[in-house]
């Protein structure tokens, strides 16, 4: 958390994260180049650059896409999510190298400018198999550029978390475009089942993990409100909530996290103001609800970040009766102080 902007708020774990990323990128390039020169000595440097950057960027995109669902399934993966934006920007830079070298190689030095040539040199827009596959790559890169360029809390604040999140959800559009770019490009060129198999496995992992998480959220957390009394809905027993942890429920469309701490219960909106992280999967640390994604903190009684921070989330009324926890799903405005339910 920070009250002022700086290019990167370095800390020890970010440095370790970036070192590991740098090592991985270097390892991949060295291996790819080594295998390439060993198995295909007649290759050209341009092809080596184009193919190594393409495969690495696509591999990293898969890792980026699976980090979110992995963290929802197992909190041990959260350290991978903490600095994911550096992973994303690195992936974009690698993809950009692929795009620039390809643009120069295939589209420069002709009668028209490279960007015009990109859209006009293959006119088969009316054919699926002969479609100019580069177009998909171009638009995917455009999305990745917008994401990389706004991959900073300055833009998160100024675009608003909602717009920022919507923009960054475009990564799934970019992924689909890249799948088309690969399927209608190099897979047709190489004509071997290996590439199609790897692409299929990658898609299966990405889609499978997202569907698994989606199913888990839908079936485990939604509660009916038919048995509400005075607006309060029974959601769980006291024992179901661990000390300093939360129970998450969806009531009347409200995503609510009920925290138990110091003999009390408080309920807040389950969505962190920073990047929509799941507060209910966080923990009370130093008296504050702490988001598991990036450590943003809120006071449980009023949903406000401790000064000097200014983030606020909605709060809800909670009751305890006979060992059962009740929540009123009608939200109070963000940052509204509500008395916690005291556990007898």
């Amino acid at each position: 958390m920070s009250v002022e902007y700086s290019p990167v708020l370095w800390n020890r774990q970010k440095k370790r994260y970036d070192l590991a990323l740098l090592g991985f990128v270097a390892l991949y390039f060295i291996l790819f180049a080594g295998f390439h020169l060993w198995l295909h000595p007649s290759t050209s440097p341009e092809s080596l650059i184009i193919r190594s950057t393409a495969t690495l960027a696509f591999l990293l995109l898969h890792v980026i896409l699976v980090i979110g669902p992995l963290c929802r399934l197992n909190a041990a993966f959260l350290p991978l999510l903490y600095n994911r934006r550096h992973l994303g920007v690195s992936m974009f830079i690698i993809a950009l190298v692929h795009a620039i070298v390809s643009l120069i190689q295939f589209h420069a030095l002709g009668d028209v400018s490279p960007l015009v040539a990109l859209f006009t040199s293959n006119p088969n827009y009316d054919s699926i198999s002969q479609f100019p596959f580069q177009i998909f790559g171009f638009f995917a890169l455009l999305i990745l550029f917008l994401m990389a360029a706004t991959s900073h809390d300055f833009w998160l604040e100024n675009l608003s978390p909602r717009v920022w999140k919507a923009l960054h959800m475009m990564v799934y559009v970019a992924y689909a475009l890249i799948v088309l770019h690969v399927a209608l490009g190099v897979l047709q060129q190489e004509g071997v089942p290996l590439g199609a198999t790897l692409l299929g496995v990658g898609m299966l992992v990405v889609v499978g993990l997202h569907v698994t998480v989606g199913l888990k959220t839908d079936t485990n957390e939604s509660k009916a409100i038919g048995n509400a009394k005075e607006g309060f809905v029974p959601v769980c027993s006291l024992e179901e909530i661990a000390e300093n942890r939360a129970k998450v429920v969806i009531l009347a469309g409200e995503n609510i996290a009920i925290f138990k701490y110091d003999g009390k219960l408080s309920a807040v909106h389950n969505v962190c103001k920073h990047q929509n992280g799941p507060l209910g999967e966080g923990k009370i640390v130093d008296g504050c609800i702490t988001c598991p994604w990036h450590g943003y903190q809120y006071l449980p009684e009023n949903g406000q970040s401790p000064p000097p921070f200014t983030e606020k989330v909605k709060t809800y009324d909670v009751r305890v009766d006979g060992g059962t926890v009740y929540v009123n799903p009608k939200p109070h405005p963000e940052g509204t102080k509500r008395p916690p339910a005291v556990i007898a």
């Binding site: 390892l27 991949y28 291996l31 295909h40 591999l59 890792v63 993966f77 590439g195």
Partner: peptide, 26 residues
């Protein structure tokens, strides 16, 4: 995380080899 990174490292080695090996000859 250490186990995950080791797995991704192995994946990188296998993927790099398979992708290079699977290319048509130049």
């Amino acid at each position: 995380i250490r186990s995950f990174l080791a797995g991704v490292g192995v994946l990188a080695i296998v993927a790099a080899f398979m992708l290079v090996k699977g290319q048509n000859d130049f």
